[in-house]
Write a protein that binds this DNA or RNA. Structure first.
Lengths: 136, 136
DNA sequence: TTCATAAATAGAAATAATTTCTATTTATAA
DNA sequence: TTATAAATAGAAATTATTTCTATTTATGAA
């Protein structure tokens, strides 16, 4: 688990536990988005004892702290991927639809307006889908 | 059910059934995004007999035909809303986080590039969240 | 209008993802 | 070293969604 992740967790007064380390190290190693089930299966190898609820809760904590983000994919399962931005600036991500690899999309061209059609604009979410170098 | 919806269904050789009419009329009447459960509850009033699977399947057919689109909201439930664009042009939507009302967002500023960071860009999805006139 | 046919449907049951709950354990700050 | 809040396991509950099969129905052709 790298320094940035530790800082992001400490900022929210979250503890650095062995399982949290293991989850983030798995993301580092795999370098792609992962489902709760895949993570849990992996944790079982190292920890024999490990529960689903911890995985789910930790994933959401990681999102809250800006360590992971949620990826939309086909099917019912959730996916999460590492966010490689540590600047804290607004940004989006591009995802490989084949392998699930994710990277920061380097710009956001959303117009600088506060309202449209009577709506007050609060925020926007975006996902760019593509095919990564290795999968092309 | 308006002419555009009928055309969009006919284009895919889908039948115009009473329940499909009822679902789309509900969307017209409510003017906001709806969950499968809400739709099913409403259908039960008029049809006594009506099953969940039909609702789910029809919602996906409507999306496929460009009549509805999926809305991302908090929680586990799916939501769908009417797409008011009949031009067939690329566009996005703005959603009221309070009441679920949805409108076409009039422009897309996504850059005209084919690739980024080694990814071949396939498509992008976007949702703008806001607060509509009535909810402000 | 009638009929043949593919499409649509209900209803029950299965599936499977996610969440809740409680007792126990553990990381961390004092 | 210790007190404490946070994290966890494991089982059970919840609930959204899908599958399956027999029946019904919209629609195009005769």
């Amino acid at each position: 688990m790298n320094v940035e992740c530790i800082q992001k967790l400490r900022k929210g007064h979250f503890k650095i536990t062995p399982k949290r380390r293991a989850i983030l190290e798995l993301f580092d190693k795999k370098d792609k988005c992962l489902s709760p089930e895949i993570i849990w299966t992996h944790l079982k190898k190292t920890f024999k004892q490990s529960g689903f609820p911890s995985v789910y809760r930790n994933l959401e904590i990681f999102v809250k702290q800006g360590i992971l983000f949620r990826v939309e994919r086909q099917g019912r399962k959730r996916y999460y991927a590492l966010c490689h931005d540590h600047s804290g600036h607004h940004h989006h991500h591009i995802i490989c639809v084949e392998c699930g690899k994710a990277d920061v999309f380097p710009e956001c061209s959303f117009p600088d307006i506060k309202s449209v059609k009577g709506y007050k604009i609060l925020n926007h979410s975006m996902q760019i889908n593509g095919i990564c170098k290795d999968c092309q």
